[in-house]
């Protein structure tokens, strides 16, 4: 048998087969992450400030505040805020990474991405994973401080913390993408920082236990995705399981909320990236 050449020109065949389509989507996700990673490594100042911020909070705010916290609360205050500081590292770096979409819109690069023959879902996942990679790296660096604070973590706990960090980073990154779909220029950045990111941080149980908050604030905290991430970290990191400073929810609840929210953020953002009217 002779192998007959295809009758349709090659360009007509391109992308028709299922595995080729999947290959294209993976390629797109990969290259979005690779771009973010490359820029992350290139911008030293971003890495330095990303590491400096948690250090300031831990050692300046944490050390100062620890004087106000009763020693019989269950643990030193600097230990209490450690999961919150990890959460903060993830919050800021994930949101920064996703908010860069607004920059890309401003400088036009986002049109290059939107004009590509890949599904909007892959674009959201790719951007979400970009934030996940850079945030998890930064969280891992901050995590290495645990012995300094007198915490004792075994290898299993460290792996658990990293897994939670990955899930939380993805959740916050996709949340950031959703935010970015509503803004067109970087002037809106300070609005996002002051009215969304800072309240999210303060109402996440990072600085004070959610169970001690007054009712309206506690409700707000329970609507905050970051709360569940930090709570999951508390569940793993804290040696005590009871007392005012212990975790507020179960680890399973925390992870379930994070995963469901991530899924919702991805689906909604992908819908919003569809063609404009």
């Amino acid at each position: 048998m002779f192998h007959l050449p295809p009758l349709t020109p090659p360009y007509k065949r391109r992308g028709n087969k299922c595995h080729e389509l999947i290959f294209m989507e993976f390629n797109a996700i990969y290259v979005l992450v690779a771009r973010e990673f490359k820029k992350f490594i290139r911008e030293r100042s971003r890495l330095v400030s990303a590491i400096a911020r948690p250090l300031l909070w831990l050692f300046l705010v944490g050390a100062g505040m620890s004087r106000l916290v009763s020693p019989d609360a269950g643990m030193p205050y600097t230990q209490f805020i450690f999961p919150g500081i990890l959460g903060m590292t993830i919050l800021f770096s994930s949101v920064f990474s996703s908010i860069s979409i607004i920059w890309d819109k401003e400088f036009g690069f986002f049109r290059e991405i939107l004009a590509a023959p890949v599904s909007r879902m892959s674009i959201v996942i790719g951007k979400g994973l970009s934030g996940t990679v850079v945030s998890t790296i930064q969280a891992a660096i901050v995590l290495m401080l645990f012995p300094v604070l007198g915490l004792r973590l075994g290898p299993l706990q460290i792996v658990e913390v990293l897994i939670i960090s990955i899930a939380l980073s993805f959740c916050i990154s996709t949340f950031g993408i959703l935010l970015a779909t509503f803004y067109e220029s970087y002037e809106s950045f300070s609005v996002i920082m002051n009215f969304i990111i800072m309240p999210m941080f303060f109402l996440s149980g990072a600085m004070y236990p959610v169970k001690l908050l007054p009712k309206p604030l506690a409700v707000a905290a329970q609507l905050n995705p970051l709360t569940y991430g930090i709570d999951a970290l508390k569940n793993v990191i804290f040696p005590v399981e009871e007392g005012p400073m212990s975790a507020d929810f179960g680890l399973v609840t925390d992870m379930a909320v994070i995963l469901i929210l991530s899924f919702a953020f991805v689906v909604i953002s992908a819908r919003l990236f569809e063609r404009k009217k």
Partner: peptide
């Protein structure tokens, strides 16, 4: 997949090299 576009405004990533911009595009278009 059948078209290429050069927009009116620049749509390059200024923080990447020319080479990287093109490689990015190649991956994005499979």
């Amino acid at each position: 997949k059948s078209i290429g576009i050069v927009f009116q405004d620049t749509t390059l990533d200024k923080d990447l090299t020319a080479y990287e911009n093109l490689v990015f595009h190649a991956y994005l278009y499979g």
